[in-house]
Amino acid sequence: MALRRVRAEDFPLVDAFHRRCSPAHLLRRWGRTRPSPRTLGRLLAHADCWLGLGAGDEPLALVSVGPVSREAGVFDLGLQVADAHQRRGIGTALARHAAQYAHDRGAHTLSTYTEASNQPMLRLLRRLGPVREMRHGAHLDVRLPLGMSGLAHRPP
C-alpha cells in the first residue's frame, strides 16, 4: 500500500474513497453520508491526512492526525478503511504511521473519540498498546501512549 498526503485539491480522490464506504460507516466517522470539500478543508486546517492507496491508486483508507486543542502533546487520530478492505491490516498500518508522525512532532499520546459500539476501532487501538478509556455517554475517549514504551518507539 502506498501513502499519499492529502491536500484540499485532492477532494475528488477523497470522494472516490468515500464512495467505497457504507453510509453507516460514513455517518459514524463524519456525521453525514457525503462529506463535502468544506468538510475536508476543515479537517486539513487542523490535521495532516493521508490516503492509503492500493493497486492502480485505488483509495482504500483515510487517516488523519493532529494536535488536540488545549492538550499539549496529545494528537487526535481519525481513521477509516473502505468496507471491502477492512480486517487486512490497512488500518493498523495507517495508525502506526500516524503514531510515528505525531511522535516525531512532540506528541506523547494519541486520542480517539469514538462510539462505544465501534468495536473494530476499539479492537485496533487495544492491539496497538495499553489504552486508557474514558466513557462519555455512548462514546469513549481512548488514549494511547506514544514514546519509550508505547507505539511510536524506535529501538536504538
Rank of each mutant, 00 (worst) to 15 (best):
D83S: 04
H108V: 07
A98Q: 14
V81E: 04
V68R: 10
D76A: 14
L125N: 02
A82N: 02
G73Q: 07
Y113K: 09
T109F: 07
R105Y: 11
A98I: 08
R105G: 06
S117N: 02
V74G: 02
L60I: 05
L125G: 06
A93F: 05
V65A: 12
A116G: 15
A116V: 07
G73V: 03
S117K: 13
M121R: 01
R88T: 01
A102S: 10
Q100D: 15
L94S: 04
L60F: 05
G66C: 09
A84M: 00
P120V: 05
Q119K: 13
P67K: 06
E58V: 10
Y101R: 13
V68Q: 11
D76E: 15
S69C: 09
S64Y: 04
V74A: 06
A95Q: 04
M121G: 05
A72M: 10
V81R: 02
A99R: 07
I90R: 00
R105N: 14
H97A: 05
R70L: 13
D104F: 07
E71Y: 13
D104Q: 14
Y101D: 13
L124V: 05
Q86G: 07
G54W: 00
A61N: 06
P67W: 03
L124D: 12
R88Y: 09
R105S: 06
T92S: 12
P67F: 03
D104T: 05
R96T: 06
M121H: 05
E115P: 03
G78L: 08
A116Q: 10
T114K: 03
E71I: 01
R70P: 01
T114H: 04
L110D: 03
A82W: 05
G91T: 09
Q100W: 14
S111A: 14
Q86R: 15
R70F: 12
T109E: 10
D76L: 01
L77T: 03
A107D: 11
S64F: 00
V63F: 02
T114E: 10
